[in-house]
C-alpha cells in the first residue's frame, strides 16, 4: 500500500513542485496571498479563488485526459460549454424546474459527446478534425439559443451552483472534487483505464485482442462532453447569465495545456487524471498570481507563456537526462555498465 502511494506521489512530484514554486513566488510578490479567513460561512482568500476560478478548466481537463489517452483530442469542449450554458439559462428562464434544467443540460453535453465519438470511432475521422466541426458550429448553436444576447436568470438554485458554498468550500470546487474522484475511481478501480490506455497505444491491436474500441472511444468523448456540460453550467451560474460569445472561449486550449502540464502524452497511452487536475490548478495559479501582482495587462500572456515553457522544459526527458548527467557524482573509478557486467 505504501509503495502504491509512493509511486502515485512520484508520478505527481513534478507538478507538485511546480505548483509549490509558483505559490511561493506569488506569496513573495503579494504577501497576503496565503491568508484564509471565514466570511459569510465560507472560506475566503486567494487560494480558494484559484480552486474556484480553476473549476471549468479542471473539469474540462478531466474529460480531456481520457480523450487524449485514447490518442484523441476534443477541441469542441469550449463550444459545448457555451451550448450547455445557453441551454440551462434558456430552460430555467422559460420556467422549468432546476432538476429538469440540469438533466436536459447534461443530456445535451452527452449528446455532443456522442456526436464527436461517432465521427471519430465509427466514421474514423481524425479527432482534431471531427471535434473541430462542433468547435466551430457549437458557438453558433449557442448564439441561436440565446439569440445573441446574454441570457440572464435569477433562479437561486441554479445560481447556487456557481456561487453557493458547501462545508465552507465554493460549490464549483465541491463539484470538481467529487466528480474528479468519481471519474478517477471508475477508471482506476476497474479495467476501464487500462483499456483506454490500450486503445491509445494501439487501437488495432486492442481491437484484435477483444476490446470493443468504438464503444470505448465514444464513451471517452461522452465523458468529455459531460465534463464540458458541467463546466458550462458552472460558468453560466457564476455570472447568472449565459454568454454564448465568451463562455468557454479558448478554454479547450487551456484544458489541453493542463493535460500536457500534467505530463500526459498527446500521443495517447498512460494518463493521470490527478496530474491533469494539478495542471489545471497550476494554470489558474499563474492567472491569479498575474492578476494579484499588479503588472500592466500587456504582460499577462508573456508571463504566463514564460512560466509554462519553464515547467515543460523541467518535465522534458532530455532536460532531465542532462540534469542527471550534470549532477551525477563524478566518482573516479566508478565502474561503467560494461565493466560491471
Amino acid at each position: 500500500m505504501t509503495s502504491t502511494v509512493r509511486t502515485y506521489l512520484g508520478r505527481l512530484l513534478p507538478q507538485l513542485i511546480a505548483l509549490a514554486i509558483i505559490i511561493a513566488a506569488i506569496s513573495i510578490i503579494f504577501p497576503g496571498f496565503l491568508n484564509l479567513q471565514i466570511q459569510n460561512g465560507r472560506l475566503y482568500g486567494s487560494l480558494i479563488d484559484i480552486l474556484n476560478r480553476g473549476a471549468p478548466v479542471v473539469l474540462l481537463a478531466i474529460g480531456m485526459t481520457v480523450v487524449i489517452a485514447t490518442k484523441g483530442i476534443d477541441l469542441s469542449v469550449g463550444a459545448v460549454m457555451a451550448i450547455c450554458g445557453a441551454v440551462s439559462a434558456s430552460l430555467i428562464t422559460s420556467g422549468h424546474s432546476l432538476a429538469e434544467t440540469l438533466l436536459v443540460t447534461l443530456a445535451v453535453g452527452v449528446l455532443c459527446g456522442v456526436w464527436n465519438g461517432i465521427l471519430v470511432a465509427v466514421l474514423d475521422i481524425q479527432p482534431i478534425i471531427a471535434t473541430l466541426v462542433l468547435m466551430v458550429a457549437g458557438r453558433g448553436i449557442a448564439q441561436l439559443i440565446t439569440e445573441g444576447a446574454i441570457l440572464t436568470f435569477n433562479d437561486p438554485g441554479l445560481i447556487f451552483i456557481g456561487s453557493g458554498s458547501f462545508l465552507g468550500l465554493p460549490m464549483p470546487v465541491v463539484i470538481w472534487l467529487v466528480f474528479g474522484i468519481l471519474v478517477a475511481l471508475v477508471v482506476r478501480q476497474t479495467a476501464l483505464g487500462m483499456l483506454v490506455e490500450a486503445v491509445g497505444v494501439n487501437r488495432e491491436a486492442s481491437t484484435l485482442s477483444g476490446v470493443f474500441t468504438p464503444v470505448l472511444l465514444i464513451a471517452a468523448y461522452v465523458l468529455s462532453g459531460l465534463c464540458a456540460a458541467i463546466a458550462g453550467v458552472i460558468a453560466a451560474a457564476d455570472i447568472k447569465g449565459a454568454d454564448a460569445n465568451n463562455a468557454g472561449l479558448w478554454l479547450e486550449l487551456d484544458a489541453i495545456l493542463a493535460v500536457v502540464v500534467g505530463g500526459t502524452s498527446l500521443l495517447g497511452g498512460r494518463f493521470s487524471i490527478a496530474a491533469s487536475v494539478l495542471g489545471a490548478i497550476i494554470i489558474q495559479a499563474i492567472n491569479t498570481g498575474i492578476l494579484l501582482s499588479g503588472f500592466p495587462p500587456e504582460f499577462n500572456l508573456i508571463i504566463k507563456a514564460a512560466i509554462i515553457v519553464f515547467i515543460l522544459v523541467l518535465q522534458s526527458p532530455r532536460f532531465r537526462a542532462v540534469f542527471t548527467f550534470v549532477s551525477m557524482p563524478r566518482a573516479a573509478g566508478r565502474p561503467t555498465e560494461r565493466e560491471a557486467k
Binding site: 497576503g32 486567494s46 479563488d49 476560478r53 454568454d243 465568451n246 492567472n287 492578476l291 494579484l292 499588479g294
Partner: peptide
C-alpha cells in the same frame, strides 16, 4: 466579459 470582470475584481478586492 462578465466572467473575467468578476475574476479580476475578486483579485483587486484581495489585493
Amino acid at each position: 466579459t462578465r466572467t473575467k470582470g468578476k475574476e479580476v475584481m475578486e483579485s483587486f478586492l484581495k489585493a
